[in-house]
Amino acid sequence: MERFHLNNATFACIIFLFLLLFSSSNNNNNICEAKCFKSIISFGDSLTDTGNIFNLSEKSECWLKPYGETFFHQPTGRCSDGRLIIDFIAESLGLPLVPPYIGRENVTSINFRQGVNFAVAGATALNQSILEENGIHNPQTNVSLGTQLTWFREMLSTLCQSTSECKDFLKNSLILFGEIGGNDYNFPFLFGTPTQMVQSMVPLVINTIGQVINEVIELGAETIIVPGNLPIGFKSAIVACCGKGPNQPCRPNDHVCDDPSTFVSWDGLHPTEAAYKWIAQGLISGPFAIPHINGLCNFRVSTI
Results as ranks from 00 to 15, higher is better:
Glu33Leu: 14
Gly103Phe: 08
Leu6Cys: 11
Ala34Ile: 04
Pro249Leu: 05
Pro100Ala: 00
Asn142Gln: 14
Phe177Gly: 06
Ala125Asp: 03
Ser23Thr: 12
Phe118Tyr: 07
Phe112Ala: 08
Asn28Cys: 11
Gly103Thr: 04
Ile31Tyr: 10
Ile304Tyr: 14
Arg300Ile: 13
Phe191Tyr: 15
Phe118His: 04
Lys38Gln: 00
Phe88Trp: 02
Ala237Met: 12
Leu296Trp: 04
Cys257His: 01
Pro271Arg: 04
Pro227Val: 08
Leu95Val: 02
Ile224Glu: 02
Trp151Asp: 08
Val116Ala: 02
Pro188Met: 07
Val116Thr: 06
Trp151Glu: 07
Glu165Thr: 01
Pro260Ala: 06
Val212Thr: 11
Gly115Phe: 00
Ala119Leu: 06
Ser42Thr: 13
Leu64Cys: 12
Ile284Lys: 01
Val143Leu: 07
Thr124Lys: 03
Ile284Cys: 07
Gly233Ala: 10
Ala289Ile: 01
Arg153Lys: 15
Thr195His: 10
Cys32Thr: 02
Gly77Arg: 06
Met197Val: 13
Ile31Lys: 09
Phe71Thr: 14
Leu84Met: 11
Pro227Ser: 07
Asn29Arg: 13
Asn247Thr: 15
His270Asp: 10
Gly44Ala: 06
Lys244Met: 08
Asn30Phe: 12
Phe18Met: 00
Ile213Leu: 12
Asn29Val: 12
Glu2Gln: 05
Asn7Glu: 14
Ser173Ile: 02
Gly94Phe: 03
Phe4Tyr: 05
Ile41Trp: 05
Ser57Asp: 14
Asn138Val: 08
Val301Lys: 15
Asp259Cys: 11
Gly122Gln: 05
Gly44Ser: 03
Gly220Phe: 01
Phe4His: 06
Asp267Gly: 09
Phe72Gly: 10
Leu296Ser: 00
Phe112Thr: 00
Ile284Tyr: 03
Gln140Glu: 11
Ser285Ala: 15
Asp49Arg: 03
Asn207Gln: 15
Ile130Cys: 09
Ser236Asn: 14
Phe263Lys: 02
Ile279Cys: 06
Phe71Trp: 04
His292Pro: 02
Gly233Ile: 10
Ala240Val: 01
Asp259Leu: 10
Cys242Glu: 06
Thr272Met: 07
Cys241Asp: 02
Glu91Trp: 05
Gly181Ala: 12
Asn247Cys: 13
Phe189Ile: 14
Gly94Ile: 00
Pro287Thr: 09
Lys244Pro: 00
Thr124Tyr: 08
Tyr276His: 14
Asn55Met: 13
Ile86Asp: 03
Trp151Ser: 07
Thr272Tyr: 07
Ile209Cys: 05
Thr50Ile: 03
Phe112Ser: 05
Thr223Asn: 06
Val107Ser: 02
Leu230Trp: 08
Ile206Asp: 14
Phe118Cys: 01
Thr108Trp: 03
Trp278Tyr: 11
Gly192Pro: 06
Ser144Leu: 07
Pro188Asp: 07
Glu165Ala: 11
Cys62His: 07
Pro99Trp: 00
Cys32Tyr: 01
Thr10Ser: 12
Val143Cys: 01
His137Leu: 15
Ile279Lys: 05
Glu179Ile: 03
Asn298Met: 10
Gly210Arg: 10
Ala90Asp: 02
Glu33Phe: 14
Gln74Gly: 02
Ser285Ile: 13
Thr195Arg: 13
Lys244Val: 01
His5Asn: 12
Glu154Ala: 09
Asn183Lys: 07
Phe4Ser: 05
Met155Ala: 15
Gln248His: 11
Ile232Asn: 13
Tyr67Glu: 05
